[in-house]
């Protein structure tokens, strides 16, 4: 089962990362994607397919001091 930020997301399997992010309305300009512990650079989104047991982390900047 694909997990995204710790939540199961079965339907993500088979999609490329760009399509997945667009469907999720993710803030692309404030987003870093980590796939199974490896950072996926933006130009690689379209050619990177999500596999059935992948672990995806989507990370953004938020307000925070220390």
């Amino acid at each position: 089962m694909v997990t995204v930020n710790g939540e199961p997301q079965a339907q993500a399997a088979g999609q490329d990362i760009l399509t997945f992010l667009q469907a999720r309305q993710a803030p692309i300009d404030n987003l870093v994607v980590e796939l199974n512990g490896t950072i996926i650079h933006r130009p690689e989104y379209e050619q990177t397919l999500i596999k059935p047991d992948d672990k995806l982390e989507l990370i953004s900047f938020v307000g925070g001091g220390r």
Partner: peptide
């Protein structure tokens, strides 16, 4: 300075 957290699509983009 700003922090990094899991993306919440509902949250505003700082």
């Amino acid at each position: 300075t700003m922090a990094l957290r899991r993306t919440d699509s509902a949250e505003e983009n700082i």
